[in-house]
Every structure is written in structure tokens, then in C-alpha cells.
């Protein structure tokens, strides 16, 4: 049972937990098989993730970091270190922001390369 980003959810998957929109209203209950129409509705309501049966967080490997060139990641880390030089990287939240920042920087470079 694990939360997946909506982009990765496919029709046919079964909900492990109910899907609510931001205000708290339940859109779909647990145990229902998801259809394309459901996905449309979720997107319209700004839902960004869903709890899917049979999937654990470890299974949903972020595709992003797998596809990134290690050299780009390296460059990105150097850039991020400069960006974060006034912060305390020991703090868990800062560390997480630093990690996300590296991924985004590398993704930007990767995107730029493809152009």
C-alpha cells in the first residue's frame, strides 16, 4: 500500500485509501478500480497523489533520478552547494531542500541539453 504521484497512476489500479480533494470531500472510496474518467476528475480537482493497493513506496522509484546523467548530477551538486552556502545542511529540512534542488538543477540541465 503506497502513495503514488497521480502521473504514475494507471487505469486498472485499485485504491488502497480514499481520494479526497483539498477541501476534504471524498471523491472516490478505497477498494474501487480506477478508470481513465476517474483520473480526469482527480486532475480537475487538483489531486496530486493516490494511495494504491499492492504498491510500496520503495517500488515507485523516481524515474527522474534514474535517467539523469551522473556528470550532470555532479555539476548540479556543485551549483547547489553554492546556492545553499548560508544554510545549515545539518538540518533535515534544509538537507531535503538541498537534495530536491540538485535534482531540479540536473533536470534543467538535462532538458537544456535535449534542445
Amino acid at each position: 500500500m503506497g502513495k503514488m504521484s497521480l502521473e504514475d497512476v494507471q487505469p486498472g489500479m485499485i485504491l488502497a485509501g480514499e481520494v479526497k480533494e483539498r477541501g476534504g470531500c471524498v471523491l472516490l472510496s478505497a477498494g474501487v478500480e480506477i478508470t481513465e474518467k476517474h483520473l480526469d476528475i482527480f486532475r480537475k480537482w487538483g489531486v496530486s497523489e493516490a494511495d494504491i493497493q499492492g504498491v510500496s513506496k520503495q517500488d515507485v522509484i523516481p524515474l527522474a533520478s534514474l535517467q539523469l546523467d551522473p556528470a550532470l548530477l555532479q555539476q548540479a551538486e556543485v551549483q547547489a552547494q553554492e546556492l545553499f552556502r548560508h544554510t545549515d545542511l545539518q538540518h533535515l529540512a534544509v538537507r531535503e531542500l538541498f537534495r530536491l534542488s540538485i535534482l531540479r538543477l540536473a533536470q534543467d540541465k538535462s532538458g537544456a541539453q535535449d534542445l
Binding site: L83, F84, H86, T87, D88, H91, V94, L97, S101, R104
Partner: peptide
């Protein structure tokens, strides 16, 4: 604000990510 800087959204003059106040977090 710290997150917006970490995401490098635009530029308000500050080049770096400002320190995060742990109590605020």
C-alpha cells in the same frame, strides 16, 4: 521564501537560499 529560493523561482536580488529558522520549520 526559503523554498522559493531553493527552487530558484525568479530573482528578487538575493542570490542565495536564506537560512531556515529551525523554530519556524
Amino acid at each position: 521564501d526559503v523554498i522559493a529560493h531553493a527552487m530558484r523561482l525568479g530573482n528578487s536580488g538575493e542570490r542565495f537560499v536564506p537560512p531556515l529558522d529551525s523554530r519556524a520549520w
